Amino acid sequence: MANPKYEEWLTPEGLTLLEGWARDGLTNEQIASNMGVAESTLYKWKNEQVEISEALKKGKEVADYQVENALFKRALGFRYVEVTREHGEIVKEVTKEVAPDTTAAIFWLKNRKPHEWRDKQEISHTGKMDHRLDVTGLTTEELRRLAQLDD
């Protein structure tokens, strides 16, 4: 027998709450807690009720876009106006500049252009590798010295 409790979350108010919590960056665990259900119940309802799944997805997309935009802005650097107020009145406005953030730029490029910016480069070698070291004429002492070079 199905638990009809999910029905309260299918109302316009319930769906707006779910979308808002997702937009605010809450995890599924936190959203389930706010709903008064176990996280497993939330996953079940998401699978069974398209409206719940879509509300959460829509809210998370908004948050993701905001983070993407902030990362992009940080990667490029930006200017902003700092306003100083005393007793509610503007005393001065100063334009400040935030330098581009190399880490943000690298992160952006590694994710947006992984074939060109990933750390691991694929290098293929064609041809023979037929090199052999002849140690038959070496003394035990010479072999020991060679072995120590590898350390």
Rank of each mutant, 00 (worst) to 15 (best):
M129T: 12
K113N: 04
R74H: 15
H131G: 08
L76W: 03
Q148G: 15
A2E: 10
H131D: 13
P4W: 03
D150I: 08
E93H: 06
P100I: 03
R118G: 04
T84I: 13
E68A: 05
E142M: 15
K60Q: 08
L56M: 02
K96N: 10
G88E: 00
E29F: 14
T16G: 11
E141R: 15
R74Y: 11
K58I: 14
L149Q: 13
L146Y: 04
M35S: 01
F78T: 05
D151L: 07
I106W: 11
L133V: 08
T102W: 10
S40V: 13
E51T: 03
D64R: 11
V67M: 09
L149S: 05
W9A: 01
V81G: 10
K46N: 07
L10S: 08
L56P: 00
P4G: 05
H125I: 07
L133G: 12
A105M: 08
M1G: 11
G25F: 02
S40Q: 11
E54Y: 14
L15R: 00
Q121Y: 12
R132N: 07
W45Q: 00
V91H: 09
S53K: 08
E19D: 11
D130P: 14
T11R: 02
L26G: 04
A99E: 12
I123Q: 12
D134G: 03
A99L: 08
D151Y: 10
A147I: 09
G36V: 01
T84W: 15
L18A: 00
R145C: 07
N47T: 09
G36E: 01
T139W: 05
K113W: 09
M35R: 00
R118M: 05
T16M: 11
D24F: 13
I31L: 02
V83G: 07
R85K: 10
Q49E: 15
K46G: 10
G20C: 07
K92S: 15
N28P: 12
H131S: 04
V94N: 06
E13T: 13
T95M: 13
L149K: 13
W9K: 02
A105Q: 04
E13D: 12
L10G: 03
L71V: 13
A32P: 03
T102D: 14
T27G: 04
K128Q: 06
L71A: 09
N47V: 07
A22F: 00
R85W: 07
T84N: 13
M1Q: 13
A75Q: 01
D134P: 02
R85D: 12
F107W: 06
E141G: 12
A55V: 00
E122M: 10
E122L: 09
G36T: 01
R112D: 10
D134L: 03
E8P: 09
T126H: 10
